[in-house]
Design a binder for these strands. Structure first.
Lengths: 213, 213
DNA sequence: CGTTTTTCGATATATATATCCCTGTTATCG
DNA sequence: CGATAACAGGGATATATATATCGAAAAACG
C-alpha cells in the first residue's frame, strides 16, 4: 500500500532529529555521509530515502538543511497541525499528554477522556480530561481524525468501536489488545513488549557470541 | 547478527498475547490458522515463526498452547527474571514504572534514579526513586544488566556513558537522542515520533486512495 | 477400514529492502 | 585553469522477508 518502504519511513524522523540538531548549530548544508555517520547507517541508504521526499542534493555539497527539513516534514504531514484526542488518562496516557515531542511534530492533543471521572486534569498538563460522554462533541467540534488509545486491553475494542462510529480515521493503539477496525481506518500498534523482546534476545545473543570467543 | 529475522521476533509477543488469551479460556491446543485469524496474518508466517522457537506442531491439531507459551518465553528469555534500573523519573519514566506489562514478562525494575532529588517515590508505584549517586551500588548489588533510559535527550549520552562504565549490557532508549555505545552493549531505540510518522503517512495515503475513487 | 479434510513442515518462488557499481557534477586545491 | 576528490543519483545486484506449492501425517467421518 505504501509508496515509500516502511523502514525508510521510520528512518525519516531520525533524519529530522539530526537535521534539526545541525540547523541549531548554524550548519546550512549537510551530506548523506554526515547523516550516516550520526546514525550509524550507510550514506547510500540515506540518499535512497531522501529520494522519496522529492528533494535533490548537490554534488560535493549535499542537501540544504532547511529545505530538507521542510521536505521531510511535508512528506510526513508534520507541517499541518493534526488535532487528536487521547482516550485513557492512566499513567501512560498522562505521560503522553505531557510529552513535549508531539508539539514539535504538530500533533495537538485537544483533550483526554476517561471513564473514571476522578482522573481530571492535575494541573501539570495543559490538556483537559473529560468524561467519555463529552467525546462526540469534542471530536465533531475540532474535526478530529486521530485518536490515541491508552486504555486497558479489556476496554480497547469497545472504545475503538465508539471512535470509529464518531468518524475517527487513525488510531494509535498503545494497549496490548488487537483491535479490529473497518478498512477506512488505519491502526498503528505501539507495543512495548515488542521492543522488550528484541532487547532481551539481542542481549542473549551478545552473551552467546561472547562465550564462543 | 540475529538468527531469527527481526520481524519474526517482533511478532512473538503478539502470539503470546493470543496464546494467553486462549489459555485463559481453557483451550489447550491451537492451530496456526487460529492465530492468524486473530492477528490478521497468514498461517504460513506463523508456522515459519514458530519454527524458530523449536516447537513442533501436530498435523490436523496444531500446537499445544501451554508448551508453545513456554517455548516462546524461553526463546525470548522471559522465563528468567531480569532485574533492571530506570533512569529519569519524569512522566514517561513514572508511567513505565507503573506499567503492569513488565511484571508479566519478568522484567523487574529494581529502582529508578533521577538527578532531581524531589522526584522521589510518590507512593503510587512500588519502585523506589533514588538520586543518581546510589546507581553504582544498586547496579552492583543486583547484578543489573538492563537499563531503561527516560532522560531528556541532552542528558542521554552522559547517562549512557555512566551506565556502560557500570557494566550495563542493554539499554532501552526512550529518549529521541542517538546514543553511542561500545560493541559489547546493545541499544534498543523506542522512538514515539517514528510511530507517529507512520500513522500520519498511512492516514494521508488513505485519503488519497479515497479521492481516486 | 478407507476416504476426506485439516494442518504441519519442507522446498521453491516472489516480493521487498539494502547494497553495490558506475557516471556525471561541482567545489577545492595545486 | 586543469586535476582531483567528494558527493548525488540511476541502474544493477544481493540479501532478507513473505508467500506459494507440495507432500505427509493425523483426526474425523462415512
Amino acid at each position: 500500500m505504501s509508496r515509500i518502504p516502511l523502514p525508510s519511513l521510520k528512518r525519516l524522523p531520525r533524519y529530522l532529529n539530526v537535521l534539526e540538531s545541525f540547523q541549531s548549530y548554524g550548519t546550512d548544508t549537510i551530506s548523506a555521509t554526515d547523516i550516516a555517520e550520526e546514525l550509524d547507517l550507510k550514506p547510500i541508504q540515506i540518499r535512497k530515502d531522501m529520494a522519496f521526499t522529492g528533494i535533490v542534493g548537490k554534488p560535493k555539497v549535499g542537501y540544504d538543511v532547511g529545505a530538507l527539513i521542510k521536505a521531510i516534514r511535508d512528506f510526513i504531514g508534520w507541517n499541518d497541525i493534526s488535532p487528536a484526542v487521547l482516550i485513557g488518562a492512566g499513567s501512560l496516557g498522562t505521560a503522553l499528554m505531557r510529552y513535549e515531542g508531539f508539539a514539535k511534530r504538530n500533533l495537538n492533543i485537544v483533550a483526554a477522556f476517561d471513564k473514571d471521572q476522578n482522573r481530571n486534569s492535575d494541573g501539570r498538563s495543559s490538556t483537559p480530561v473529560y468524561p467519555m460522554e463529552r467525546l462526540p462533541a469534542i471530536v465533531a467540534e475540532h474535526e478530529i481524525e486521530i485518536a490515541i488509545l491508552t486504555v486497558p486491553p479489556a476496554a480497547a475494542q469497545e472504545v475503538t468501536d465508539q471512535l470509529v462510529k464518531l468518524g475517527i480515521r487513525a488510531i494509535w493503539n498503545f494497549s496490548s489488545a488487537e483491535i479490529q477496525v473497518p478498512p477506512h481506518v488505519v491502526v498503528r500498534r505501539e507495543d512495548l513488549s515488542e521492543g522488550l523482546a528484541v532487547l532481551c534476545v539481542q542481549l542473549h545473543e551478545l552473551d552467546e557470541t561472547r562465550e564462543k570467543k
